[in-house]
Design a protein around this nucleic acid. Structure first.
Lengths: 333, 333
DNA sequence: TTGTAAGCGTTATCAC
DNA sequence: GTGATAACGCTTACAA
C-alpha cells in the first residue's frame, strides 16, 4: 500500500526525475526511446502523478470546485453534466462537494473546497449568506448558478423565471382558461420571479391573478389544493411553482374526484425527470440545465484565464413542454 | 486575488511559520497571547490552511474520495449523507466525483480522485471493471457500495436482494395472490439476487415463478406490461425490479383500463422518493441507504487506521414499505 | 514555549 | 535532450 513517486519511476527507468516529469506532461522534447521506457516503468509501478504536489510546484491548478447545495435534487445532476463537459474539454477536473441543504454544512463544504486551492468555484444554488460568497470571491473566481448576486466579481447563470411563468400562463390562456391560480414557492429561491411573471402575464390579459401561498414540495401542493377546495374557490387551471408541487396538487385533485386535465389543468416548473414519467406526464416549464452548466464553466474558465473584471449575468430563456395535464376548460369542449 | 500563506500570517503576527502551524492545528503548547495574535492576523488576511500542502508535508490525508456512478439517482445522495455524517464526525472531509454512468468517464473520475492521494476511496455502484478496482485497492483502502467484489482487500456494503425479493413475495402471498410475475432488471446491478430471491420464494410456496425480462426504467416496465397484455397472460400481481420499472408498469396497466390495486397489485424496489409521492404511493422494498453510507465510511476509516487485512462484507436486510398499490386479488374481495 | 531547518512530490530554470 | 537545483506551502523533529 505504498504509492510510487516520480523518483521511483525515474530509478526504475534509469533516468532523472526531471525527465519523468517531462514525459508525464507530454513534452515533445524527449526521445522516443526514453519516453517509452519511462511510460513502461510508470505502468509497472502503477504510478500516477500527484495532483497537488504538481499544483503546488507549478503554482497553477487545473481543478474546479463545485458546490451542490442539494444532491437529492436531480436538477443539479444535469447542471454538473454540463460543467463536466466543458471543464474536461478544456483540461480541467472537478471536485464536487455538497451542502446538504443546510447553511452550516454548506459552509463546511465551501471551506473544504477552498482548502484545495482550486482554480475557481461554481456554486449551485447556494444558501450561505452573500458575505461568505463575497469572501470566497476575494480569493478566486466564483460563478453562481440558480442564485443571483450583486457582488460585482461573481458571475451568475439563471433562468428567466418571469418568462417561464409567462409561457405557462400564455399556454393556459390560449387553451381558453381565464381562472388560473398560481401555487407559489414562498421564500424559495426563484419563487419571486415566477410569481411576478405570473401576475404580469395575467394582468396583461386583463385577468385577475390568484396567488396561493405554497412551497416547493408535493405535500405543500396538496395542502394548497385542499385549501382552495374547502373555500369552494377552485379555478379551471393551476400553475405550480415547481413539478413536485404540481404532482401534489394533482394528487389532491384526484382525491377530490376531479379529473386532470378534463376538469382542471395543471402546469409545473422545472421539467424534472418526474414530469417526464408516463404516469405523471406533466406539462411544465423546462430550464436548459446542461446549458446552465456549460455557461457556468465557460464563464469561470474565462475568469480563470483573463482575470476579467466585468461580471457576466446569463439569463436563460426557459421553454414550455406540453404533455397531458393541460386541456381546454371543461365548459368549452 | 492573491491567497495568503502561512508565511504572510507569521510575518504579520511577528512570529515564525512553525508557530502559526501549531496554532492552526490547535496545539496546546502555545501561549495565549501569541495564539490570539496569530488568529487575529489570519482573520485579517483571510487566511485558511492549504489542505494539500499540509497533506504533502505531513504524509497523511484527512480526505476521503467518493465516486458516485450516477448523480441523477437520488439513491446515492442518501448514501453520501451517511458517509458524510461518519466522515465529518471523525475529522475527515469528502471529495466527490461522478462517473456519469459511463465506464470511460468513471475511469477518469477514479484517476482524478486518486491524484489527490486521499486516505481512502468509496465507490458507489461503480461500473468499471474489477481490475481497475483492484489497481486502486493496491494503493489505498477501497470500499464498494451496491456492488460486490471478490477482491480480498476491498470491503463491500450491499443489501440482501434475495431477502428483499422474498419480502415482496411474502407480502403478496399473504394478501392471497398466487399468480405473481417478476419484471426483472436483466443485467443490471443487483438484478440477479432479486430474481433469485423471487424464484426461491415462489417455489417455497409451491407457486410457479414467471420472470419477465425487463430493465431498470419506467419505459421498460411499461413495455413488459404491454407484452404480457398482448399475450393475454396477466398475473394478479407484479413485483418489479425497481421503483421506476414499477411506475412504468402501473402506467401501462392504467392505460389498458386496469386499476391498481383493485385489478392488479404492484410492488417496487428501492423506496425512492418517487415511491413516497402521494400520487404514486407505491408499495416497495426499502434499503437502508444512509446506513449503507455510515457502514461504508466506518469500514474505510478502520482500514485507514489499522491497515486491517480481512475484508468486511456487510449485507444489510431490507424492509417492506406497504403503501397503496397492493391489495388482495380482485376475485377475493 | 518558540524558532530553525529539512523534507513532502512536483515543476521550472538553467546549465550541460 | 537531459540533469542539477531551487522553489511551492506546509509539518515536524530538534534545538534553543
Amino acid at each position: 500500500m505504498v504509492r510510487p513517486t516520480m523518483e521511483d519511476v525515474a530509478l526504475r527507468a534509469g533516468v532523472s526525475r526531471a525527465l519523468v516529469s517531462l514525459v508525464m506532461r507530454g513534452s515533445p522534447k524527449v526521445s522516443e526511446q526514453r519516453r517509452s521506457a519511462v511510460l513502461k516503468a510508470a505502468e509497472e509501478l502503477g504510478y500516477s502523478p500527484h495532483a497537488m504536489a504538481r499544483s503546488l510546484a507549478s503554482r497553477t491548478s487545473t481543478v474546479l470546485g463545485v458546490m451542490v447545495s442539494d444532491l437529492h435534487n436531480s436538477f443539479f445532476a444535469e447542471v454538473v453534466d454540463g460543467i463536466d463537459e466543458v471543464a474536461h474539454q478544456q483540461g480541467f477536473e472537478l471536485i464536487i462537494n455538497t451542502g446538504g441543504r443546510s447553511p452550516a454544512r454548506e459552509r463546511r463544504a465551501l471551506e473544504s473546497l477552498l482548502s484545495f486551492r482550486p482554480a475557481g468555484l461554481i456554486l449551485l444554488s447556494p444558501v450561505v449568506p452573500a458575505t461568505s460568497i463575497g469572501k470566497a470571491a476575494d480569493q478566486l473566481p466564483v460563478v453562481l448558478v440558480a442564485r443571483s448576486s450583486r457582488i460585482s466579481t461573481v458571475d451568475t447563470v439563471n433562468d428567466d423565471g418571469e418568462v417561464g411563468a409567462r409561457l405557462a400562463v400564455e399556454h393556459l390562456v390560449s387553451l381558453g382558461h381565464s381562472r388560473i391560480a398560481h401555487l407559489d414557492g414562498g421564500e424559495g429561491s426563484q419563487a419571486g420571479p415566477r410569481r411576478r411573471g405570473y401576475v404580469a402575464a395575467m394582468e396583461s390579459h386583463g385577468l385577475a391573478p390568484q396567488v396561493v401561498t405554497s412551497e416547493y414540495t408535493d405535500v405543500a401542493g396538496a395542502r394548497a389544493i385542499r385549501r382552495l377546495l374547502a373555500e369552494d374557490d377552485l379555478p379551471t387551471a393551476i400553475f405550480s411553482c415547481n413539478d413536485f408541487n404540481a404532482v401534489g396538487a394533482i394528487s389532491a385533485l384526484e382525491d377530490a374526484g376531479l379529473r386532470v386535465p378534463e376538469d382542471i389543468s395543471v402546469v409545473g416548473y422545472d421539467n424534472t425527470s418526474l414530469a417526464a414519467l408516463r404516469h405523471v406526464s406533466l406539462t411544465t416549464v423546462d430550464q436548459p440545465r446542461a446549458e446552465f452548466g456549460r455557461l457556468a464553466a465557460s464563464a469561470l474558465l474565462h475568469r480563470v484565464r483573463d482575470d476579467r473584471a466585468e461580471p457576466v449575468r446569463h439569463l436563460l430563456t426557459p421553454s414550455l413542454v406540453v404533455r397531458t395535464t393541460t386541456a381546454p376548460p371543461g365548459g368549452l369542449r
